[in-house]
Design a protein around this nucleic acid. Structure first.
Length: 582
DNA sequence: GCCGTTTTCGGCCCGACTGTTTTCAGTCG
């Protein structure tokens, strides 16, 4: 079988990491990092390509192409095997400590014989690290502290769901300060990566010292100050205990700073290289002519991109996965935006047990958000403890018309069905046929293997009354991985049966993820967006679902929620009439 | 190791913060 791009990218990434520790030429390291990124972003299976096809991919040259072919043929890359033999795993582990990079790790290993995090802790404790040339008590104390911090966590990244509320409050407080003109989230949180390493917050101000001092002294938000300078304050927060870097810039640098600090790193590097080719230089303060130093852009992001002859690129697409090339060629898709949504296709009321708000409260909130239609998809009866009975659902049905009229929104009579071990769902076809909209999801037997979960989902899709599959992989970010579905089979079955796949907007789920969204679109799948709201506040999840859709380059045409009521009903009808048994 | 609107060779993105080395290297994003 062919190796996946993900695995090839991992191999190349590990080569880069080990080369860096082996003190290799920095540009050679970077070349492997870039190649790994290019492989990870490729939409076709690189394991199948010839050498000349491989070198056609930007970032892959002759040498890397040989490595990929070597891996495909032998399941191993000789260079990586050599590096693994030469660079000890303990050395790699030590570089996981924030503030401890490859140079210092190498010295600790060579000069002090340290070869694990335990060795490092001991050497910090007895003063050997502090006594190294160029080190001192303060450096050692910082490392000891950083080591303690990573020791308490099993990963150095935090799920977005754990930081969103806290960061919103932090931004609100910053925004209330006299000296603050603008405040916004940048970094991976703006791009909505599913986990964040640290949080970047951008502040426009004429008085950075005042802003920095105000936040630094806010004991409710700040557990610890890591660094404080004229343009940056780094803190560890209370609450989620995450690092937040607050960048302080003048208002006329806002756009350049937003571009710079939103990243991704790969995207901004490409941007700066493009600038150099055009005789410009880009930093967080602006875009300047290289020769004269004359400022040509910087106040807004649109202006900054325009100075590089590019349209504005949505933050969610800035991963260097082809967006710069597409923008350059004028083929960047206009991705779906929250304002394009006409409705929500997955949400709950307290008719099913885990809903936290009444049907009327939810309907009112949905209408106030400007949605034209809203599908209430309470849990069906097989969900132990929480499912609604047939009678409860029939009673709910009677209320939908009047409530819709009262609040000026059309309500779709919906269900969230439970996919059982064999791919069946809660109710018979006759009863299901009386509903407007059905999501079907796996809520039980989450430990089944990949083949079984794929089979359950594909079987459920053959039901003419199952319109979309809810949170398809079942993942909960930071808690449990999703099942490894056989995507090719899932896509084929979805197309054959006219079934959609959901992008679930719960920040804990973001399921399916952006990279799968992109593959699904290529396969011709229709996507649905679901807030999976169990409370009024959860309706905000639509925003996260939309951002996830953008990460997969989804357009209005790919997302069922962007259609009017007739469009949704047409999709439902097409499935019932054309699907197996329809 | 990769790449080409100066180049098939010789470059390759930019700046802040920290600690400590009185002029800068390492790390980070």
């Amino acid at each position: 079988m062919a190796w996946t791009n993900t695995e090839i990218a991992r191999q190349l990434g590990e080569i880069a990491e080990l080369l860096r520790l082996d003190d290799a030429d920095a540009y050679r390291v970077r070349a492997y990092e870039r190649a790994a990124g290019a492989v990870g972003a490729a939409s076709e299976d690189l394991g199948q390509l010839s050498k000349s096809e491989l070198t056609d991919v930007h970032g892959i040259g002759s040498s890397t192409a040989d490595k990929i072919i070597e891996f495909q043929q032998h399941g191993e890359i000789g260079l990586l095997a050599e590096l693994r033999a030469r660079v000890s795993p303990g050395l790699v582990a030590m570089t996981r400590v924030p503030g401890l990079g490859p140079k210092l790790a190498r010295r600790l290993h060579d000069e002090l014989g340290l070869d694990s995090l335990d060795d490092l802790a001991a050497a910090l404790d007895d003063g050997r690290v502090a006594s190294l040339d160029g080190m001192g008590e303060k450096s050692a104390a910082k490392l000891a502290h950083a080591l303690e911090r990573i020791g308490a966590k099993d990963t150095d990244r935090t799920p977005v769901a754990d930081v969103l509320d806290f960061v919103a409050e932090l931004c609100r407080r910053l925004g209330d300060l006299e000296a603050v003109e603008r405040v916004d989230i940048a970094g991976s949180l703006r791009r909505l990566r599913e986990t964040v390493g640290d949080v970047d917050v951008l502040v426009a101000t004429d008085d950075p010292a005042a802003v920095s001092a105000s936040l630094r002294d806010d004991a409710e938000l700040v557990a610890e100050v890591l660094a404080e300078g004229d343009t940056k304050l780094s803190i560890i927060t209370r609450g989620p205990g995450v690092q937040v870097d607050v960048r302080l810039v003048p208002a006329d640098s806002w756009g350049a700073a937003l571009l710079y600090f939103t990243g991704s790193k790969a995207h901004t590097v490409r941007i700066r290289e493009r600038a150099v080719r055009r005789g410009l230089t880009v930093n967080e303060y602006g875009i300047d002519e290289r020769e004269s130093g004359k400022r040509v852009a910087g106040t807004t992001e649109e202006e900054a991109y325009a100075a590089l002859a590019l349209p504005w690129i949505p933050p969610t697409m800035r991963e260097d996965t082809g967006e710069i090339e597409a923008a350059d060629e004028g083929t960047l898709p206009r991705v779906v935006e929250e304002a394009d949504l006409q409705g929500d296709l997955h949400a709950h009321s307290d008719v099913s047990g885990d809903g936290k708000a009444s049907l009327e409260t939810m309907v009112k909130a949905a209408a106030e958000r400007g949605l034209r239609w809203w599908a209430v998809t309470d849990h069906a009866e097989n969900l132990t403890m929480n499912g609604a009975t047939r009678d409860e659902l029939l009673a709910r049905r009677e209320r939908l018309g009047p409530l819709g009229d009262k609040y000026g929104i059309t309500l779709l009579d919906g269900l969230e069905l439970n996919i059982d071990a064999q791919g069946g769902v809660d109710y018979d076809d006759d009863f299901l046929a009386t509903f407007d909209w059905c999501v079907a999801s796996i809520h039980s037997m989450l430990d089944r293997d990949s083949a079984q979960q794929t089979e359950r989902i594909c079987q459920a899709m053959t039901n003419p009354h199952v319109h979309t599959i809810g949170h398809p992989t079942g993942r909960q970010i930071g808690r449990r991985p999703g099942y490894e579905l056989d995507w090719e089979r899932v896509f084929e079955t979805a197309v054959a049966t006219g079934t959609a796949l959901e992008i679930n907007g719960s920040a804990r789920r973001l399921d399916i993820a952006g990279d799968i969204v992109r593959r699904a679109i290529d396969a011709g799948i229709t996507l649905t967006i679901g807030s999976d709201a169990h409370s009024v506040g959860d309706l905000d999840n639509l925003r996260w679902a939309v951002k996830t859709a953008q990460r997969g380059w989804a357009t209005v045409g790919d997302v069922l929620n962007c259609r009017d009521l007739d469009g949704v009903r047409g999709f439902v009808r097409a499935k019932r009439e054309d699907g197996p048994g329809g």
